[in-house]
Nucleic acid binder design. Structure first.
Length: 335
DNA sequence: AACACGTACAACCGCGGCTAT
DNA sequence: AATAGCCGCGGTTGTACGTGT
């Protein structure tokens, strides 16, 4: 429709509010209520647009606003709600009395988002990230831990880290190769893509766990999936040069799109605990961890659909390699 | 002390939903 | 049914303040 912005009128003030303007606004609303925001500025004697007045009132001047730092409980609630609702700040604010959507949004962008990223989680999906660069802090932490225990040399660590990075790249590339499978003519794309993500995650976990145990780079995992069909040991045969030449093609490799299915929950929780580096009592991803009961929010729809799935098949759909995969030279090297 | 850089947060902008005409 | 206008929301920007060099 292209309605012009309400603040187009010339002569209306913008920018920071003065205490005088605040007083006028508070006084007017206390006496008359805000009524029509568009009409309010004139009636209150404020040289601003109604939108600006509404924002100032709802985000700053409202008497029921709780100022000050967010408590641990509030932080936990925001994390929980964001995992379910996403960036629905007003909906999240509805569960936090006295907090405005703007305040929560700012708190998220300046604190919580960074916190999640530092912990190796995708702040949008709340799931572990597997792309190499976002995982580097974990790899380094892992190497440092190992060093403390075993007193191995820096050179050994470097070799180990390099090997681990290559291993992760392999997993990532495999995930990239398998992406078309998840959307290749079957009826339940969400279901299939969840298998892809889970398998890659488990392969990655196995790789890291194995390294932790004996510096071996991988161990085969007993899952009846295409990932297993290729096998992590087969992955070891991928030449690094080919591998890294493919990496720039990866599109958003860190995103996990679907929840884990219930049959894989044990592995999923292990991975969650592992990824966090410690069993944080405040973990938003562990069901029993919250110190306060989570608000009753309906789970996302796809969570329910996953309940019906099984780890032993792809919903019964006949399996075939997609053309995109068959055309890839690396696929032929792998198989 | 001066500067650069990072952080926090208030405020603005533009879009879309809803409602009245 | 189409249009116009209001309101609320989410994304982005601007700026004050803090910290490190």
């Amino acid at each position: 429709m292209g309605r012009p912005p309400c603040c187009d009128e010339n002569g209306l003030k913008k920018g920071p509010w003065t205490s005088e303007e605040d007083q006028k606004l508070v006084k007017y609303i206390q006496k008359h209520g805000h009524g029509s925001w568009r009409a309010l500025p004139k009636l209150a004697g404020i040289n601003r647009c109604g939108k600006s007045c509404r924002l100032r009132w709802t985000n700053y001047l409202r008497p029921d606003i709780k100022r000050g730092k967010f408590s641990q409980d509030e932080e936990q609630t925001i994390l929980n709600l964001h995992a379910v609702l996403g960036n629905k700040w007003s909906a999240i604010a509805g569960h936090l009395p006295g907090r405005t959507d703007n305040e929560i949004k700012n708190f998220w962008n300046t604190h919580l988002k960074k916190k999640l990223i530092q912990m190796g989680f995708d702040p949008m999906t709340h799931r572990p990230r597997t792309d190499i660069f976002s995982s580097l802090p974990h790899l380094i932490a892992l190497a440092n831990l190992k060093e403390l225990v075993d007193h191995h040399s820096w050179e050994e660590q470097a070799v180990r880290l390099q090997a681990e990075a290559i291993q992760m790249a392999r997993v990532q590339y495999l995930q990239y190769l398998l992406q078309p499978l998840a959307s290749n003519g079957t009826t339940n794309n969400n279901l299939n893509s969840s298998f892809m993500d889970m398998d890659s995650t488990i392969s990655l976990l196995n790789s890291l766990s194995s390294m932790k145990d004996n510096f071996a780079l991988s161990s085969p995992h007993q899952l009846d999936t295409p990932t297993q069909a290729l096998g992590t040991s087969t992955l070891q045969s991928v030449p690094d040069s080919i591998l890294f030449s493919h990496l720039p093609q990866l599109e958003n490799p860190c995103t996990y799109q679907t929840p884990l299915n219930k049959d894989n929950m044990v592995q999923a929780n292990e991975f969650t605990a592992f990824s966090q580096g410690e069993n944080s009592p405040n973990s938003p991803w562990l069901a029993s961890s919250s110190s306060t009961p989570s608000p009753s929010v309906a789970p996302p729809a796809e969570t329910n659909s996953i309940d019906a799935c099984s780890t032993s098949s792809y919903g019964g759909a006949p399996f075939a390699w997609p053309d995109l995969l068959l055309e890839d030279p690396l696929f032929h090297e792998l198989s």
